[in-house]
Nucleic acid binder design. Structure first.
Lengths: 361, 361
DNA sequence: CGGTAAACCGTAAACGTTTACCAAGAAGCA
DNA sequence: TGCTTCTTGGTAAACGTTTACGGTTTACCG
C-alpha cells in the first residue's frame, strides 16, 4: 500500500532491498521468510513489514538452486483430455499445496516418446518426487530418477526398485460387485471393452474381470472381449465391433467411463436402448457419469484417495521416513448402481416395461 | 550406454563434469548446449558425446537464475475440471513446446483468493508471460506483472495497460447463427442459461445472445434468462428453475456445453425429450458434445485457435515485437448443428415424428 | 563483579549456469 | 617476414538465495 518507497523502480526487488529497508542482514531476512524460530520477534516484525511494503516475492529458482529442494512434485498422467485425470490432478494439487508443494504436470498421450520428454522435464526442473499415473516407464528413465535421488510412486504394482513405490488398487472388490450385480439381474454373457494394451492398470482391470467371471461361474467368450483405448471414440468403435457379431453379449463392462459413454453413443446411433437392449457398467465414476443419459452404473475409484495417498507416499519418503518400497495403502473400489443396468431382454418374464423405471441412487 | 565412466556416482553430474570429460571449458559446453554457432565443429562433437555418455541434463534453475528467462509460460484457467479447459491446455502446451517453452498451470475455481495465489506462484517461478483464460484479475496483481515486466494476454477485452493484451472472440457470429437457426425452426421464445456473473466472457455471451434476439426481432423475456455457473450441476439447477415456470420457453441456449449437458439431464429426469419438448444449444463444442444423447447442437469456438493465438501473442512480445496492446487476432465461432434442435411442439404441423431422425453432421 | 553459556545476528561461501571480456592462435596482407 | 584482423576458447563475474561458521551481545550463576 505504501507507495513512497521510491520511483516505482522497474527493477525487481530482491532480498537485499528487504534487508536494507528493514535494517537487517540478508541472512536474517532469509531466516524470517523460512520461519526459522531463533530470530528476534521485533526484527522479524520489521522484516515482515518491509516485505509487505516492497511486495517482495522470493525467487524460487535461486532458492531451489542453493537448497537443492524445488518443492515441486511431478505428476505424469495419460491424457489430460480424459475427465478422470483433471479430477485426479485437482485432488493431487490440493494435497500438494497443503504441504507447501506445487505440481508440474505432464501428459503422455500414451506415447513412450512423450513420456520420455515428460520425464526429462521433471528431471531438468528438479522435482522432489514424481507420481506416474499412467502406463509403465522405461527402465532407463527410472535409473535417472534413482541417480538423482528422486522418489517415484506408481499406480498399480511396479517393479521393485530402491526408490520406487506404488499404490495398490483393489480392483477386485468393485469389478466383482459389478459382475455379481449383472448376474443377479440374469445376465449370462457379459462382454468387456478393455483399455489400451500398454496401460498396466487397464490390463489389470481386464484380468480382474476375467477372474470375476470365473468366480461367478460364467465362462468368458473371447469374441466378447474387445480392445478399446479409454476414449469416447474407442468405446464407440469397440461397441460397433460387438454389434457386428452374430451372437452378442447382453451386458458390457468397460475399462473406464469414457469408453462406456462411447458405447452409449454407438447404441444410440444403432437405435438400441440402454438398459433394455444392453446393460452397461463403466469404471472410475467420473462426475459426468451421473449425467449421462441414462445415468451410468459404474465402479467408483476415489481419485481423492489416490491423489492423497500418492502425495503422502512421496512426502513421507522425502522426509526420510524411508521404508516405502512396499505399498501399505490400498485404494478401494465399489459399485455405484445407476440406470444403465437392468434385466436382459431374453430373461424378461412379465414386467418388461418397468425395469427402466427403477431409479436407484 | 557407456558405463565405464566411473562407479555410478550418486552425485548429480553438472556442466563441469561434461567439460572435463570433453576436455574443454564449461563456457564451451554452455555454448554448445545453447547452439551458439561460433564453436568449432570438432569440439562441439566432443561435447555432445560427453553429454550423451554422462546423461547430462542442464539445471533449469541455474540457467534461469542467471539468464533471467525461465522459458515458462503461465496459463490460468477457470476450472480444470470443465472439459473445455483440458482441451485448451493441451493445445496451449502443444503450441508452447513448439517454441521451446513449458507451461505452468493454475486453476482458479472462480475464486479471487485462488487467483491471487496462482498469480503469486507465476511471479515466484518467474514465468516469462501469462495467459489468463478466466474472469478478470485484480488491478494490483496486474501491477505486479507489469513491475516484473511480464506480458499478459487475456481472453476477451481487458483494460488497456502497457503490457497486457487480449484475444477477441467473435461471439456474435456463432450465437447469432444459433438464434437464427432456432427462429428458422419456428421458435419464438428462447431462454438462456448464463455463466457465472464474474466471468467476463460469460457476460459477453449473454449480452451477445440478447443482441441476437433483438436483431431477430424477438424480445427477451427476463424470466427466461437464468444464471448458471458453467458446470453440470449449474445447468441442471437452472433448467429446474425454468421448468418450475408457468410459461416456458421452447428452446434454450446455454453459455457453455457443460451447462447444456446438465440441462439434458434435468430434462431426462423430468421425463421430457430433447428436441421434442425443448430445443437446446450449447457453446464451446467440446469433444463430448458429439457424444451426448442426443448429440448436442452447439457453437464451436476453436480452442486450438485460442491457444495458438495466445502463445503467439505472448512470444511476439517477448521477442520485442512490441505493439501488442491491441488485439489483431479474431477468434471465430460458428454453429454446429447436431440433434438437440428441432421444431417447437406447438409449431409442429404434420410430420412430427420425423424431426428426430434428421442426422445432420 | 567476573566469567561462562546461551541466544542471535552477520559475513561469506556455496549452488550450476550464462556471458562479457580477454588472450591466443591462425590467416591475410604488405 | 612482420603486423593486423579474425576466430575461437577460456576466465571470472554475475544471478538471488540458503546456511555453516564465527562473533557479539545478553543473561545467569557463583
Amino acid at each position: 500500500m505504501v507507495k513512497k518507497s521510491g520511483p516505482l523502480r522497474t527493477a525487481k526487488i530482491d532480498i537485499r532491498d528487504v534487508a536494507s529497508r528493514a535494517g537487517v542482514s540478508i541472512a536474517t531476512v532469509s531466516r524470517v521468510m523460512n520461519h526459522v524460530p531463533t530470530v528476534d520477534a521485533v526484527l522479524s516484525a520489521r522484516v515482515w513489514e518491509a516485505v509487505e511494503e516492497l511486495d517482495y516475492l522470493p525467487n524460487t529458482q535461486a532458492r531451489a538452486l542453493v537448497s537443492g529442494k524445488s518443492r515441486l512434485l511431478g505428476l505424469i498422467v495419460s491424457e489430460i483430455t480424459n475427465p478422470f485425470f483433471p479430477e485426479l490432478i485437482q485432488e493431487f494439487e490440493r494435497a500438494a499445496v497443503k504441504w507447501g508443494y506445487e505440481i508440474l504436470l505432464g501428459s503422455t498421450n500414451y506415447e513412450a516418446k512423450t513420456m520420455e520428454l515428460c520425464a526429462r522435464r521433471m528431471l531438468e526442473r528438479k522435482v522432489d518426487g514424481v507420481a506416474i499415473m499412467t502406463f509403465g516407464i522405461d527402465d532407463f528413465l527410472l535409473d535417472r530418477f534413482e541417480a538423482d535421488n528422486v522418489p517415484v510412486v506408481f499406480i498399480d504394482p511396479a517393479p521393485a526398485r530402491p526408490l520406487s513405490s506404488f499404490l495398490a488398487v483393489d480392483y477386485y472388490a468393485g469389478i466383482h460387485e459389478g459382475v455379481e450385480h449383472l448376474v443377479g439381474l440374469g445376465h449370462k454373457s457379459i462382454g468387456f471393452i478393455s483399455g489400451p494394451r500398454r496401460l498396466r492398470s487397464a490390463a489389470t482391470r481386464k484380468a480382474t474381470f476375467l477372474e470375476s467371471l470365473r468366480v461367478a461361474g460364467l465362462k468368458a467368450e473371447p469374441a466378447f472381449i474387445v480392445e478399446g483405448n479409454h476414449t469416447l471414440d474407442g468405446g464407440r468403435d469397440a461397441m460397433q465391433k460387438l454389434l457386428a457379431l452374430r451372437k452378442q453379449p447382453t451386458a458390457i463392462m468397460c475399462s473406464n467411463d469414457m469408453t462406456a459413454i462411447g458405447v452409449q453413443h454407438a447404441l444410440f446411433e444403432a437405435n438400441l436402448k440402454v438398459p433394455d437392449d444392453f446393460s452397461l457398467i463403466g469404471f472410475d465414476d467420473i462426475h459426468l457419469a451421473e449425467y449421462t443419459i441414462p445415468p451410468l452404473t459404474t465402479v467408483r475409484m476415489s481419485c481423492e484417495d489416490i491423489a492423497q495417498k500418492a502425495v503422502e507416499n512421496l512426502l513421507s519418503r522425502l522426509r526420510g521416513d524411508a521404508g516405502g518400497v512396499a505399498a501399505a495403502s490400498l485404494v478401494m473400489t465399489r459399485l455405484i448402481v445407476r440406470q444403465t443396468t437392468g434385466k436382459p431382454k431374453r430373461a424378461v418374464r412379465g414386467a418388461a416395461a418397468s425395469s427402466t423405471k427403477s431409479k436407484k441412487r
